[in-house]
Design a protein around this nucleic acid. Structure first.
Lengths: 143, 143
DNA sequence: CCCAATATGATGCAGGTGCATCTATATGCT
DNA sequence: AGCATATAGATGCACCTGCATCATATTGGG
């Protein structure tokens, strides 16, 4: 049987526990500030980056690594919350294009205040620029 | 507003996406082999490490970073699946001690075959020992 | 000794996720 | 054109998770 080295196992355990702790931490911060969760931020950001033509749900799925049904329901909730709009368009009547509402844009901005603080504090405050680059490079090897 | 550097943001995005992808990947492998999910493995391992006296649920919560109700229900399911046993004991009649059944031990062993292969392949195969140590150290700074 | 505070674990409810499947439209092969 | 296949997105169902709260047992202060 293939057996991973102690170093491999230690790196993996650190990866699991650190990412879990950090995600839970930022999610708590967002909830405490009455803001939407991280997944919503990612969607809001992608839509905003897409610009005035909006973006197709299936493109969002691919970029954010969500399953199709997951994105469908996430967009449902964000729509209900008034943060996005979905419009069918003539080109392909199966599809739709997703846009931010002003409230969606405002929500992204408010989340970013908390999120940026978290990143600057919990990551920027702990890792030097050199460390951050090294970490990113090591993680990329795993991708 | 505090703004995290580009390097900080890139490291964070890599951390999020790599840990997510790897976890989904091992979960898929386990499911494909008809085995229990990762969280179950962690519990089975901790119980086994605890030895013949078993382990208390609240100790499992602390070690595995699960909320109390999460561990309570996880143990319910594992009990129903016949992998563990819970016994109340005289010392503190609020509490209980958790033990592996033979099936639980067997499940842990079978999961480890898949899990070890995954780690050796997807991490050990990609990172040198030096890389693995460096990654672990960088992640520890974030903990 | 008694009562408030604390610790251990369980549970009702609302909401989120995975899986399979469904509907509707578009494309391609003959 | 006609029909099989593929693509975009929605949804029913079972299960899982978070939150609040509960029940029970223990501890500590007066």
């Amino acid at each position: 049987m293939k057996t991973p080295s102690k170093e491999t196992q230690a790196a993996w355990r650190a990866l699991l526990s650190v990412s879990k702790s950090l995600v839970e931490s930022i999610e708590r911060d967002l909830k405490a500030a009455d803001l939407a969760p991280l997944a919503w931020y990612d969607v809001l950001l992608e839509i905003e980056k897409a610009g005035k033509d909006g973006i197709r749900p299936f493109e969002l799925q691919e970029r954010l690594l969500l399953p199709q049904y997951g994105m469908s329901r996430l967009l449902d909730r964000m729509d209900t919350a008034g943060l996005i709009q979905r419009e069918t368009f003539g080109d392909d009547r199966r599809g739709q294009s997703v846009f931010l509402t002003p409230e969606g844009k405002a929500m992204r901005d408010r989340i970013w205040v908390v999120y940026a603080g978290f990143l600057a504090d919990r990551i920027g405050g702990v890792l030097s620029e050199t460390d951050a680059v090294a970490l990113r490079d090591l993680l990329r090897k795993l991708a």
